[in-house]
Structures are given as structure tokens and as C-alpha cells.
Design a protein around this nucleic acid. Structure first.
Lengths: 192, 192
DNA sequence: GTATAACGAAACGATACAGTAGCGTTTCGT
DNA sequence: ACGAAACGCTACTGTATCGTTTCGTTATAC
């Protein structure tokens, strides 16, 4: 009958302290660095408390990945397509080029490639990432800025691909000018 | 005075058996799967023998990454640029889309991103990969098929990026048609 | 044929980690 | 104020791995 939620505030405090430490460890040292002991040390939360709230290290790791989701940033919806796409790509590039994410993405890809449960986490992150591009592109199609035959999945690969290539493979800097040229290249072949 | 090389042939046999097993384990299960015990079990070579030939697990891991380098395939040099680029991209896509490599690349990126010594291995692999594209593009510039102002590094990002995006991020299939469209997109905005 | 080097099997100590249990203390809701 | 719950602390078990050594066997070179 009574309210099931909002129990002892200490529970929330402990949980968030643990997750915060776990996320930090994940971003700094990869999945392998997320040990219970390291979390205990960094968070100040006791080992026993952690196991009171999570069944196992695995559960905790899952929760850590969940806590990792970045807040979605709303892309601008005004101005010409070229500017909207460039803004979107630049904001994405700035985020994934930032220190914690640049280091975390390889770890994420690796961990999620071999673990079916973690694969869901990756799909969610990827879908969130692709959604922003898809919405911008679909709107452009509706407004006639892009042909109706545009293959969304292919377009996203062509726009976001070069950015990830520089981040993951060649490790070149991701500056705004590069993002703009990628957008221009994409548009040059599609637009009138 | 005597010949220093080519000692007991068993040495070579053991070494290659160990490396072969280590490479298999790396491709199958990532860096974490390359344990000395697993190598012992799979290769049939004894623990002691392994430590006779390598100082430590770390040395062995380095050697494993070195043994990983794929044989370079020579891109075709005839025909129009469109076909040459498409051929190159398709052959690359087929390789990195193949089961062992598709699974290995995330592990490689992760491991090499946090380990300065392994970083050299990644650079070597990336450079080999980029070299093939660079040579094809430079030749195209010489022959007037591309403008002399073409930024090689940028061009490679734009051509190879979408492929890696599909492989690593979106996990979509890498078919030849996709590769060709990527090339066409690139050329459409550059060529007369 | 024999000496020698490489070999395989097995054991060892050290380290790191996950997970469990007990106990006294602190904080919360009522 | 008081009981319940959450907490921190500590010690413990069990497992996995590494690095190293010993020892008896086997293949190779001469």
C-alpha cells in the first residue's frame, strides 16, 4: 500500500557514488580497470555495500555501461542543411573527441563485441547517435533539400564514418573544419 | 666463429606453434584471452619452453601482434580511377569484414590505445593500410584524375571511414555495392 | 654412439581479484 | 526516542594467472 520508491537516501547516495567511480575507472582504464576493489577505493563505499546493491561484478558492469549514456544534445533545426549537418557533426566530434570518450570508445567496442548482454548497450548508444543524424536527414528530405531516394543508413555512414576513422584508426585531430568539409563532400554529390 | 643462426629446428617449430596459437586466441577472444596457459593448451608447447623463448608474457604478446600483420595485397594499377579505388576498397572491406579480423580490430584498437608499446604496432598496421590508398590517390593526382590540391589524409578518411563505420559502429554488412557507392560519392564531388 | 640442447610435465610462490561473512556503528523514518 | 536498515570495516575463501624452477625425456648435432 505504502510508497515503494524513495527509501533511505543513503542507498541512492551509495549507488551513485559507486557508479560514478565505476564510470571514471571505465573511461580511464577500460573494462579491465573496473574492479570491485578499485571502486571501493575510489568511491569510499564499502565492498559489502556494493554487493548489497548488485548481485555480482557483472551486474555492476552492466549498470556502469548504462550510466555511461551521454545526455543527447538537440541539434539545431534552423538554417540551411549544410549548417545543420555541420553543427551536428561538429558537436558529435567534439564530444567523442573529448578525452574520456576518445579513450572509452575502443574499450566499449571491444567489450560489447564479445558479450551479448553488453551488445545491447552498444546498440542503444549507436542508435542514439544515429537517430540525431537520421532526424536531420529525414527532415531535409521532407523539405526537398535532399532527394527522396536518399539511403539514410548509407548517408550516415558517409557523414559519420570519416569522423570515427580519424578518432579510432588514424588518430588525427577532429577539428571543426574537417567536419565541415565532410559535410560539404556529402552534399556536393547529392544537391543541386 | 661458427654459424650463429639456424640452431635446433625444434626451436623454430616451437616458436611458430606458440605464435600461431597466440594469434588464434587473440583473434578469437581478444587480448585477455591470450594467457600463457591457453597457449600451452592449444599449441602443445610446454610452459617452460615458452619462457625459454620469450622473457615474459608481455614480450610474447608483442610478438603475437607482430605476427598478426596481414600480407599486403597489391592494388590493381590499370583502368579508370573509379575502378581502381573501388577494387582497393572492396578488397580491404572483404578482409576486415572477414570473421577473424572483424573480431580482432576492436581488441586491437583497445589494447593499443592504452599501451605505448603496442601503439607502435597499430601505427604500423594503419600505415600499411593507408599506404595503399595513398599510392592510388597520388598516382591519380599525377595523371590528372584528381586535382593537385587533394588532401590525401582527408581523402583517405572520406573513403575508408564509411567502411570502418559499418564494421565497428553500426555493424552493417560490408558489401561491394556499398564500397562502390562510397567511391562514387567521393569522386562525384572532386572530378570533372 | 654420445654429448648436448631443447623439450614436456609438473610443481611452486606471489599476486590480484570476486565474492562471503561477521560485527560494530551510523543514519534514517516514524 | 527507538527500531530497522544501511553502512564501513576486516578477515576470509576460492580461483586464475603469472613467473620461475626442477626433473626426467627426447631429438639433434657432431
Amino acid at each position: 500500500m505504502a510508497t515503494e520508491t524513495s527509501q533511505d537516501p543513503r542507498v541512492e547516495r551509495s549507488k551513485s557514488a559507486v557508479l560514478e567511480a565505476a564510470v571514471d575507472l571505465l573511461l580511464e582504464g577500460g573494462v579491465g580497470a573496473v574492479t570491485v576493489e578499485a571502486i571501493v577505493e575510489r568511491s569510499g563505499v564499502a565492498r559489502s555495500t556494493i554487493y548489497r546493491h548488485w548481485e555480482s561484478r557483472r551486474e555492476l558492469l552492466l549498470a556502469t555501461f548504462d550510466a555511461l549514456t551521454p545526455p543527447p544534445d538537440d541539434p539545431r533545426v534552423d538554417g540551411p542543411l549544410r549548417d545543420r549537418l555541420a553543427d551536428l557533426l561538429q558537436s558529435r566530434a567534439r564530444r567523442i573527441g573529448s578525452v574520456p570518450w576518445a579513450a572509452a570508445i575502443p574499450t566499449l567496442l571491444d567489450a560489447t563485441s564479445r558479450d551479448p548482454e553488453l551488445a545491447g548497450v552498444r546498440e542503444r548508444l549507436v542508435e542514439q547517435h544515429r537517430g540525431a543524424f537520421r532526424r536531420t536527414l529525414e527532415r531535409a528530405v521532407e523539405e526537398g533539400e535532399l532527394p527522396a531516394t536518399t539511403d539514410m543508413s548509407e548517408a550516415i555512414s558517409q557523414i559519420a564514418g570519416p569522423m570515427f576513422y580519424r578518432l579510432l584508426i588514424s588518430r588525427e585531430p577532429l577539428d571543426d573544419a574537417f567536419a565541415r568539409r565532410v559535410v560539404d563532400l556529402f552534399l556536393a554529390s547529392r544537391q543541386r
